[in-house]
Design a protein around this nucleic acid. Structure first.
Length: 430
RNA sequence: UCCUCAGUAGCUCAAUGGCAGAGCAUCCGGCUGUUAACCGGAGGGUUGUAGGUUCGAGUCCUACCUGAGGAGCCA
C-alpha cells in the first residue's frame, strides 16, 4: 500500500511502500539506516542484512544522497526514532540514481546554497519554511473569504509610473509602449471595493529599488484588502485580526515545522489582539527618549523600526504619520491636517514593517490638489478620480508583505529563505 | 552610488612573509541501533583576476571581479 510519511502514524504495524528520495544514510556493518524523504516528511528506514539478503544489503550500502527510490516495509513505532516511527525494510527499488549531490549534510555558505536553490529546497529546514509559507497564505485566504471579502486581483502590467515614488521595472509592451510591473494593486483595489464592497488582491509585487538588506526582495507577494465605508479604525481592526488569525493558525497546524526551525513559540503565543497602538508623535518621543538620532517629521528608518518593534512584545500599530512622508492618496486627519490617517504595523523581535495602509482620500478637490502637489500627470489618474466623482465614500485598506511575515513567524535572519526562488538585486538564478 | 567584511581542495575553513593543511563529501575497508553516526586508508590545489614590493607572497601594496552585511533608497 502506498503511504505518505506524514500519514505514517495511521499505518502502524502495516506494510507500506514509501516513494521518495534518499536523504541520508548511515551504516553499521549488518544494518543500514536510510533516511527517506517524500516531500511530506522524513522517516528512518531500517534495513538488516538478515531481512533482505547479502546482495540487496550490499547494494543498499552504495546508495547515494537523493537517489529516487521506493521502500517497502513494516511501520513500527519506536521511541528512538525522530517522529516516533520507523520502517523495517523488506524491499527496496531504485528508480533513478543520484551522483555527487552538491548539498551534503554539512555546512554550506549562503552564496553556494542560493546558486543551488532548486536543490536547497529539498532540505528539511527549507521544506519546513515553505510549508509554513503555505499555511500563512492559506490562513490569509480563509480569513478574508470567511468575512465576506471577494478575491479581485489587480493587474501586473501597469500603464505608467503612477505614484512617482518608488522605482519600477519597465517592460517593453508592443510597438513603442512601455509597461511597468506593479508595485501595488492599491489604486485598482479602491475601484474594486466600490464595485464589490470588500475585496482583496493577492499577487506578486515588484520594486526596482537597489535595496540590499535582509528585508528586501525585488519580487515579493503582497495581500491587499480594501473596504468601502471604512475608516482608519476599521482598517487597523482588520489588520490586527488578520495577523492574530495567521499566527494562531500556524501555531495550531505547523508546530512540527516551527520545531524544525527551532522557533521560540512563546514569542508567537503572545501575539494576540489587541496590539498596542501609538501615534507617530508618540513613536518619535519614544525614539528620542531612547537616544536615537531620529529627526521629527521624517519617515522611520530601518533602525527606528527595529528599536520600536523590540520595545513591544507583540506587533505595534503606528498611526498618524506626517502627511508629507506618505502617498498622495492618504486622507489627512480632519483634526490635524498635517497628519495622515495611516497605519504601519511593525512585527516584534526587530522584524519591522509588515503592514502599511490607511484611510484613502475620498474628496475630489483635495485629491486633485495632491496630485498637482506631487507633480503627477492628472490625465493618468482620470479613472481613479472617477471613483470620487461617482459616489465617493470613506474607504481604506492595507497591504501585508507575505515574505516579511513568513520571516518573522519562522524567526529567519533574511527574507530570501521565505520564497522558493528569491529575486534580489544581484541574483536571478536559478 | 557609498561604507565594512570575505574570496585557499567539490563544501566549510586553517596556515607569524619561509614545505599547501584539517574536517566533511567521493572511493576502498571495518562495525547489528545509528541520529550531521563512528574507526582506518586513498585520491583530490593555477590560494578570485592582473600587476607590484621582497631572496622568498595564500599572507604586504594597487586596481579590478564576485559575493555577503549595512547605508542611502524603498507608501
Amino acid at each position: 500500500m502506498r503511504a505518505y510519511i506524514e500519514d505514517i502514524a495511521g499505518h502502524d504495524g502495516q506494510q507500506v511502500t514509501i516513494q521518495g528520495w534518499l536523504h541520508n544514510r548511515r551504516s553499521s556493518g549488518k544494518i543500514h539506516f536510510l533516511i527517506l524523504r517524500d516531500g511530506s516528511g522524513f522517516i528512518q528506514a531500517v534495513m538488516s542484512k538478515a531481512a533482505v539478503g547479502d546482495e540487496a544489503f550490499a547494494r543498499a550500502g552504495h546508495l547515494s544522497q537523493e537517489t529516487a527510490l521506493s521502500v517497502t516495509g513494516t511501520v513500527r513505532a519506536d521511541a528512538r526514532a525522530r517522529g516516533g516511527y520507523e520502517i523495517d525494510v523488506v524491499a527496496l527499488e531504485v528508480h533513478a540514481e543520484s551522483h555527487d549531490y552538491p548539498i551534503t549534510p554539512k555546512e554550506h555558505g549562503v552564496d553556494y546554497l542560493l546558486d543551488r536553490r532548486h536543490l536547497w529546497i529539498r532540505s528539511e529546514r527549507q521544506v519546513a519554511i515553505l510549508r509554513i509559507r503555505h499555511e500563512i497564505i492559506d490562513a490569509v485566504r480563509d480569513f478574508f473569504n470567511g468575512r465576506g471579502f471577494v478575491l479581485c486581483d489587480t493587474p501586473i502590467f501597469t500603464p505608467a509610473a503612477c505614484e512617482g515614488t518608488s522605482t519600477l521595472f519597465p517592460v517593453p509592451y508592443f510597438d513603442d509602449a512601455t509597461a511597468y510591473l506593479t508595485q501595488s494593486g492599491q489604486l485598482y483595489n479602491e475601484a474594486n471595493a466600490m464595485a464589490l464592497g470588500r475585496v482583496y488582491a493577492f499577487g506578486p509585487t515588484f520594486r526596482a529599488e537597489k535595496s540590499k538588506t535582509r528585508r528586501h526582495l525585488t519580487e515579493f507577494w503582497m495581500v491587499e484588502p480594501e473596504m468601502a465605508y471604512a475608516d482608519l479604525h476599521d482598517v487597523i481592526d482588520l489588520a490586527e485580526g488578520l495577523i492574530g488569525a495567521v499566527v494562531a493558525r500556524v501555531l495550531d497546524r505547523r508546530r512540527k515545522e516551527l520545531a524544525v526551525l527551532e522557533r521560540d513559540v512563546t514569542r508567537l503565543e503572545r501575539v494576540t489582539p489587541p496590539f498596542p497602538r501609538i501615534t507617530y508623535d508618540e513613536a518619535a518621543a519614544l525614539l528620542q527618549e531612547k537616544g536615537l538620532p531620529f529627526q521629527y517629521g521624517t519617515d522611520l528608518g530601518g533602525t527606528d523600526e527595529t528599536v520600536l518593534s523590540e520595545h513591544f512584545d507583540r506587533p505595534v500599530c503606528v498611526t498618524h504619520y506626517p502627511a508629507s512622508v506618505k502617498a498622495f492618496y492618504m486622507k489627512p486627519d480632519p483634526g490635524q491636517p498635517d497628519k495622515a490617517l495611516c497605519v504601519d504595523i511593525l512585527a516584534p523581535e526587530g522584524y519591522g514593517e509588515i503592514v502599511g495602509g490607511g484611510q484613502r482620500l475620498d474628496d475630489l478637490d483635495l485629491l486633485l490638489q495632491r496630485i498637482t502637489e506631487h507633480g503627477l500627470p492628472q490625465e493618468a489618474f482620470e479613472w481613479y478620480l472617477d471613483l470620487r466623482r461617482y459616489g465617493s465614500v470613506p474607504h481604506g485598506g492595507f497591504g501585508m508583505g507575505i515574505e516579511r511575515c513568513v520571516a518573522w513567524i519562522c524567526g529567519l535572519e533574511h527574507v530570501r529563505e521565505t520564497i522558493p526562488y528569491p529575486r534580489m538585486l544581484y541574483r536571478m538564478y536559478p
